[in-house]
Simulated assay, not measured.
Amino acid sequence: MNLSHLKMLITVAELGSLQKSADHLSRTQSAVSMALKKLEDSAGFALFNRSGYRLQLTEQGQHFLRQAEEVVRQQERLQSLTEQLKYGAEPLLTLCYDHTCDSKLWLPSIEHIQQHYPATEVHIDGESQMRALKRIDNGSADLALCPWLPLFRQYGDFETLPVAPFELTVAIASSLVDDFERIPSSRQDLLELPMLVPQNLEIGINLDAVLRLPSQQRIRVNEVNTQFELLKAGFGWGIIPKHIAHNAIKQGKLVEITIPGFIQQVSLEIHLVRSANRTLGPAANAIWESFA
């Protein structure tokens, strides 16, 4: 058994076709087929049931695949660690945060890097619609801060640390309350007002299906600061991070909506996220340990 054969096995199991796998791996179909045969000869049992149109793993093959995936992950971690040991501290450290989070959470980390890793250049990128998670998954960022739900684990192999509370609140502009002549107090009231709602998240979650919120008219935005400005301008009601709306609520520009039996305040957590498949460099690991 060798790693290239195991990687071919993982690809075939995912795509269910020798030809598609060969195209994906830039190999010939015969090369992929031969690799699977060598694996089966070495294992002593069939990995795939070849009787159908799509290749399906046998029961033994499913158990074999899980271990093969772990072997490949361990190899990737070892390769990543080797690179870090070879070159020392990383020349570039990329930190991401979702715009719904307070970017000031990064300030102690940046100060630490400046003091202890002066040769490391730091990039700080704000992202919307949970693109920060996608960047951790595809390796274009080292660490990310974002609101966290357990279901996000199905979209990548992540490790996380809770770092701060995250509250959402339902709000509306005081000017729109005046036009409506009362503070909305029922789901029916909300149906009569436009809703400012985020566009579907980049990681594949349909917010309409998850939230099931009432409103006949919707204005979709892809960035929370735009949503906040539209809220203050009286274009509708919406759900927004409480730390963003706090001052506007205190100043009377926004009013919190309280409806019995409806979402009023949602308390989640902001997590620090990294990939479970890549070893962090010294600077990134120092940040991780400081949050831990």
Rank of each mutant, 00 (worst) to 15 (best):
G44L: 04
P91D: 02
L191D: 04
V273Y: 01
E70K: 07
A132Q: 05
F45L: 04
S51T: 13
L25S: 06
R77H: 12
E83F: 15
W148H: 03
S290I: 05
T11E: 05
S33Y: 03
G261C: 13
P241Q: 08
S109P: 04
D157T: 05
Q265A: 12
P282S: 01
R187D: 07
A144K: 00
F180I: 03
F291L: 04
S109H: 01
N277L: 07
E90A: 08
P198Y: 04
C96M: 09
Q115L: 07
N222H: 08
A141P: 05
N49I: 05
R278I: 05
W237E: 05
I244T: 03
D179H: 14
Q75I: 15
K20I: 03
W288M: 02
N277F: 03
H63F: 06
C96A: 11
G139V: 08
G281T: 00
K86P: 03
E40S: 09
E192W: 12
S140T: 10
Q251H: 12
N222D: 11
I259G: 07
T226Y: 07
E70R: 01
F228Q: 02
M8F: 10
T226K: 13
L191K: 09
P260L: 15
E40W: 04
D137W: 05
L9Q: 01
Q154N: 15
N2G: 07
Q74A: 10
P118V: 15
Q216C: 14
G16A: 03
G126P: 01
L25D: 02
E70D: 10
T120D: 02
N2T: 07
V255F: 06
P162M: 13
S51Y: 06
L6E: 00
L9A: 02
Q227L: 07
L3V: 14
R54V: 08
L36Q: 04
P260F: 11
D179I: 11
A283R: 06
K242W: 11
Y155D: 15
G236W: 00
I136L: 08
P118W: 12
P150I: 06
D137K: 10
Q56K: 04
L15C: 06
A46Y: 11
E256G: 04
N138I: 05
G234A: 10
E229F: 09
R212V: 15
D102C: 00
V170L: 15
S26C: 13
P118A: 13
L133E: 01
P282E: 00
G281A: 02
Q188I: 11
V170G: 11
S33N: 13
V255S: 09
L105P: 00
L18D: 03
F64I: 00
T279Q: 07
I136D: 01
Q56I: 09
I110N: 01
L145H: 00
Q75P: 09
S140V: 14
L78M: 13
F45P: 06
P150T: 07
Q154P: 12
H116Y: 14
K7M: 08
V71T: 10
L193T: 01
F235Y: 06
V170R: 07
K7V: 04
Q217C: 14
P165F: 14
S33A: 14
D189V: 08
A141M: 06
E256V: 00
Q56T: 09
I287T: 00
A209N: 12
Q217E: 15
T11Q: 03
